[in-house]
Design a binder for these strands. Structure first.
Lengths: 244, 244
DNA sequence: ATCAAACCTTGACCCAGGTCAGCCTAGCCC
DNA sequence: GGGCTAGGCTGACCTGGGTCAAGGTTTGAT
């Protein structure tokens, strides 16, 4: 079951962006008061996704963007003619999901909840009416997409000619920064994704992820208990990332 | 020297998009007549770049987008605290360069000509005035960025858990498709990039690129003389890409 | 035509990390 | 609480592709 298929009676009328704690990191952050009000009124709030449920299914019709309110998701692609899926990204609260579907009739990737997750749904048809008269909205969207593009290029750099240690150090530093931007600790957070997800995202076997995390712990740069991570030395991770 | 630093006298007043052979694949393709006319009038045509010259230099102020008229370019990133550069993308005629700088004060990557290259320059400040009144322009830009995003995710899949053979097969198939969209042969084209550039882009050593291309040739799926490529069997390449 | 610099190819060697296998642990459902 | 399942850890082994080295080819400048 996907989020768009449940009782519309459970939806709230608007998202109350003005009182949302994520307003400062969300798509809505730089909108004019007018644009914000109009956008708010077109946001639906589907019922929460449970771990493993799909928000977006690859191949389905593209209809909406989604803003993450709480929880986290992974984006997975199954390249045509392959049965193996690849994790191409993770989404945290405040991030915009579905941008790669704009201008396409069908969604090019699936997006799956990694834990109980609340999102706002933004039907793209209504959105595109709105941005005709709201340059601040077009601009916000462009900025979001541009940022995601930069993130992907960064990821490409991380995966090209880097050792497993460097990839994982870069990955943890990236997560740490994103948590900090969201007002969480940059030193201590929970990894919602499995070792297999991390491996798929970094181009490593899950065993390698496990081994390298163990090594980092023995070196004293992190402390990790299953999925509960503490970064003991940001500098240490940076040094590993920039090694050689 | 960059393209923005030469005699303004050499610039033509507009780009004559309506008679440009690339109109069908360029940013301008879906614009309303009105938007096209206004966009055309704000396009500059800097003098051509020679092989190795930079169109965009990482760290410089972000000012413009560029539309490739002829030739080709590579995008390179030097991650902070590293001296090695990574090739994160290639640009062909009709493609839009610089999208990842939108919303940033400084360019996050360099873009370098791989051969003699002509571009149109589109100052972003002028562009952003224009799209207030031209939803078709906002939409075109969003579609371009979304497409680039899909391309990057595809690239991530290609680099995650794929052999050197699969990466190169995927790379050649991707190029073939892009050349075809531009009205060139999908079977026969010139690789403007060096083996080193390809390797950096795919996360392989240049020696590996050379060896795998040789192997492809011996297997009879391609024919390659230095940079002149002929694809003898698209199906063969697809089979390699989807192997196992 | 000559030369230099950049680029490409090929071979030999070796190691980072993939694969397989076995076991342990945490979290969930009845 | 007990048992089931998904997820995580670790060891042994092996190979794809990185690195180093040497020689050939292409390109462009004089």
């Amino acid at each position: 079951m996907t989020a768009t298929e449940q009782d519309p009676g459970t939806r709230l009328p608007g998202a109350q962006c003005d009182v949302c704690s994520l307003h400062g990191v969300c798509l809505t952050q730089d909108l004019s008061a007018d644009a914000l009000e109009r956008l708010d009124s077109m946001l639906d709030q589907p019922s929460p996704l449970k771990r493993g449920e799909s928000l977006i299914t690859q191949g389905n019709a593209f209809t909406s963007l989604y803003l993450v309110r709480s929880g986290s998701l992974k984006q997975v692609v199954r390249p045509l003619g392959q049965e193996l899926e690849h994790v191409v990204g993770f989404y945290l609260p405040g991030e915009t999901v579905g941008l790669e579907g704009i201008g396409e009739s069908h969604c090019p990737a699936s997006v799956v909840a990694m834990e109980t997750t609340f999102v706002c749904e933004l039907p793209y048809a209504r959105l595109s009416e709105l941005y005709c008269n709201n340059p601040s909205l077009s601009e916000s969207l462009l900025h979001r997409m541009s940022r995601e593009l930069r993130g992907e290029k960064r990821q490409l750099c991380l995966m090209s000619g880097r050792t497993a240690e460097q990839r994982l150090a870069g990955f943890l530093l990236g997560l740490s920064e994103r948590f900090q931007q969201r007002g969480c600790s940059r030193y201590r957070f929970r990894l919602a994704m499995s070792r297999g997800d991390i491996g798929s995202h970094l181009g490593l076997a899950l065993e390698t992820v496990s081994r390298v995390l163990g090594r980092f712990q023995r070196q004293g740069v992190i402390q990790i208990a299953t999925r509960e991570l503490t970064i003991l030395s940001l500098e240490g991770l940076r040094a590993i990332l920039e090694e050689h």
